[in-house]
Amino acid sequence: MFVQQLINGLALGAVYALIALGYTMVYGILQLINFAHGEVYMLGAYLGIIVLGVLTYWGVTAYSLPAALLITVLVSMAFCAAYGAVIERVAYRPIRNASKLAPLISAVGMSIILQNFVMLSQGKEYKNLPPLLPSEGFSLFGANVSPVQMIILSASILIMVGLQFFVAKTRLGKAMRATSQDRVMAGLVGININQVISITFMIGSSLAAVAGVMVTLYYGVAHFFMGYLAGIKAFTAAVLGGIGSIPGAMLGGFMLGLIENFCASYISSVYKDAFAFLVLIITLIIRPAGLLGQKSVDKV
């Protein structure tokens, strides 16, 4: 059963990691905790249900399930990227140079607006998605790895490797790193900061969309409040790994998923959240910048 718990924990952790990446990328560039990010994840989940519904209506799901799922993820990513860019443009850019607290309040406000927008337009009820994929997967050391778990794990690892490559090797990635080191200086050497920041938000939001769609496939439910708890957990994962660090967010996400699962199975399922935060506190006492975070000297 240890293997089963390991797989459950990794699948949960992959979702946390995908959301945490959005937090950590935005923080790396703007030193802003984008509290509306959890809401983007929730939007991704809703979009997933809507697109899947439309595709089923058109008969695409019956024709080819993998194609339908791929289209769903891509459409949801595109929409959420647009949401991310608009959120940045509307809520953060006008007050970018104001005091640090102003964008933070703006983020909380944005989060409430999005939540209420979905609540009013989609209703307060839980949205259900009937199980599309079989629950029986392949057997690994006596554990059942369901198809959804396989999709979650492989997709998220692929995305994370891709992102790491993008940030480390491409021109735009370099511009991103430069902007995160010193925004003013990066602007002076000719980097279009507004564009870089917009793209960062778009990437982060589309990753949240992937997480949203996969979670709906995994658990079969979406509701307007789901972004809150997931946002908090992913933010915790980002802090655990070292906020601002991309590998840190991945590590933090997987660690949080595993800690929660093992605590729930071997200690008590009731105290799993408390235990996750206990680990966070201990980590921060030993390493205040998180596991892979770097101590910043000049940034406050």
Binding site: M1, L12, S269, V270
Partner: peptide
């Protein structure tokens, strides 16, 4: 004999323990 948290999306850990 044990509790779960309301609104938690994931109960797989408890269910796996029960299966054991």
């Amino acid at each position: 004999y044990g509790g779960i948290i309301q609104r938690d999306p994931d109960y797989k850990a408890v269910l796996t323990t029960i299966k054991e």
